[in-house]
Structure formats: structure tokens, C-alpha cells
Design a protein around this nucleic acid. Structure first.
Lengths: 159, 159
DNA sequence: CACTTAAGTTCCATTTTAGGACTCACTAAA
DNA sequence: TTTAGTGAGTCCTAAAATGGAACTTAAGTG
């Protein structure tokens, strides 16, 4: 199976990873969320080759996760900003960060801490139910076949 | 920068990705959460080469995200089960899935839907604040230098 | 004019990956 | 008692992805 094929899988995790699941893309997005917008800054902060960075940024623009916004003419220069679609990857980054904090931080503790201005507390983030608001326990969540998978199975069967 | 070097970065996202941020690992874990435990089953469901799978499973065992549990002797066979550390990757998978549902599902809708037995509703998952319980708005979260980053800067400066 | 900056490109050597064939230890079927 | 099958790998080679350094373009600076 080639990497590009996983985009076809009837699985939202696979489809998301087909865009964001390579070596560097999530690190680029981490920097985007921290305010980085320009090519050289990404390159220095992340330390990947310029070649790769060009590639990844173009892919993110193609999939409308970042967009190029000109910030000067003569010479024409532009910066990369998160779109709505990009901003919605925030939970992915934050859950990764939390797991890293919990399991990979080492003796010095987490590198970054988070402060919630809405309630004035240092905090961490949990998953909660959109309906009842309670914190999620994985055992209380049951995955069921949804319309996308049903349609897929039918289309496979009819071949 | 080599891939292995990102583990040294003072960033929890980078450290988490150094383990789960390659082409296949999160797909393996997705299957683990869906109940898959055996080599061949992973291989068939994901469609990666056996060679890669061996590699990835060993890495996950090494980092104590999965553990090998024997289920028969003669010949000795074992299955791969999530550890506590592994189970705590649940939010990462679910936030990826939600993003995929929202942005990559296509006209047929999401392949999987989720049902919360605690409240008896079909639901999706949000990030909420550990302190006040409110749903998180990224703009209301301020990252601050934590102890891990402070220790790191000091150790760099003293060189 | 020589130097610098931002944002890429080009080239080449090295790494990683995909996919198929092969192995090993055992069990079940003919 | 050969034959086939299964689970879990290992080995090999060609193809793809990557890292690093040097080069390019279009300005602006001293």
C-alpha cells in the first residue's frame, strides 16, 4: 500500500493522516499555532531542509489548511496563515502536547504550560461529550457504522 | 535535522511525534483501539508491508505503548495490547477522527459515528478545560514557559 | 559594487519504504 | 506421512523520500 492510497480508506483517521501524518507537517502546524508565518522562520525553528519545507507548505496550501497572504510587493513576499480548516487542527496538536507532557517530559516537567483566560487557571485539556459535557471515558464511547462506511461497503459489494 | 533528533526538542508535540508521528503508527493504534491484537490482522487491515509492521510494533512495545501478551504456548504466540500509556493516546486518535469527519468525509458523511453510553446520545468530542469544564476556544488559551523549557534554556546558555 | 534578506530550486548521496519471496515452529487434513 | 496451513517474522531489491549544501531571483542597504 502506497501512502497516497490511505486517503481512499473509509476512515477519518486515515484520511486526516494522509494530509497531516508525515514527518514534518504537524510540527509546521505547531509553529503556525505559536504564531510563525514565514518560510525562513519555519525552517530555522523546525530544522528541516528548505526543500522539504517548500513541499509541505505547498501541500498545506493545496489542502486549504494554510493560505498564502502577501505582506509586501517589491519584492513580492507572502506569509502562511492558518485557515479555519487549519485552526480546527488545534485539538490534535493539544492532545499530542498533553500526551507528550504526561509521558515524555522527563524530570524537568512540561516545557509549556497553559493558562485559561476564561477561568483564570492553569489547566490541561480533556475530551468532553458534545451532548452532556462530561469528560470522556473511552469505555463509554461506542463506535457505530456511519453513513460514509455504509455507502462504501455497498459500493464495494456491487463491484 | 534527522528524525531521531526531534525527540530532543523541548517540545511535547515533537516528542510525541518522535514516537507516533510516522506514516503508520497512528493507524496501528487506531486498529488497537478498535480491538485488533494480532500481527496478521493488523497487516491485512492496514495493508502495510510485514517488514514495516514488525518494526512499528517493536517500537511501540519498546516505548511501552503496546505490550506483548502470550495467548498460547506451542508454538508461542502473543498479541499486542494497549498499555495505560497507549490508551492515553485515545484523545489524539479521536481528535484526528473528528477533523477527518468534518473536513475529509465527502458527500456520504462520516464513516463512523459515536454513541455515548453515559448520556445515551450520538455525540462528538470537544476539548474542555480541566478547571472550569468549559469547551476550549483556542484564543482563550495562553501558552507560558514551563519548567521543562526553562531548564532547557538554562542548560543551553551554560554551554 | 559587494552584502544581505526572503523565499525558493537544483543536485546528489543517503535513508526509508514497498512488495514479494523465504523461514521457522508447529497443527490439521488427506 | 507427505501436504497444506497459520502466525509471526526475516531477507532482498527497486523505488521513493529525505538531508544538506550550493545556487537563484528580486529587491534593499552602505
Amino acid at each position: 500500500m502506497k501512502w497516497d492510497d490511505i486517503q481512499e480508506m473509509p476512515c477519518s483517521v486515515a484520511r486526516a493522516l494522509s494530509i497531516v501524518g508525515d514527518r514534518w507537517t504537524l510540527l509546521i502546524l505547531r509553529d503556525s499555532f505559536m504564531g510563525t508565518k514565514r518560510f525562513d522562520k519555519f525552517q530555522k525553528q523546525i530544522g528541516l531542509s528548505r526543500h522539504r519545507l517548500t513541499d509541505r507548505l505547498n501541500k498545506l496550501v493545496k489542502y486549504e489548511i494554510l493560505r498564502k497572504v502577501p505582506y509586501q510587493e517589491k519584492p513580492r513576499r507572502h506569509e502562511y496563515r492558518l485557515t479555519r480548516k487549519g485552526v480546527e487542527l488545534y485539538p490534535v496538536l493539544m492532545t499530542l502536547a498533553k500526551w507528550g507532557d504526561n509521558w515524555m517530559a522527563g524530570e524537568n516537567g512540561p516545557p509549556i504550560e497553559y493558562f485559561h483566560t476564561a477561568c483564570n487557571h492553569q489547566m490541561s485539556m480533556n475530551l468532553s461529550c458534545s451532548e452532556c459535557g462530561e469528560v470522556i471515558n473511552p469505555k463509554e464511547v461506542i463506535p457505530k457504522v456511519g453513513p460514509g462506511l455504509k455507502a462504501y461497503s455497498e459500493s464495494v459489494r456491487s463491484k
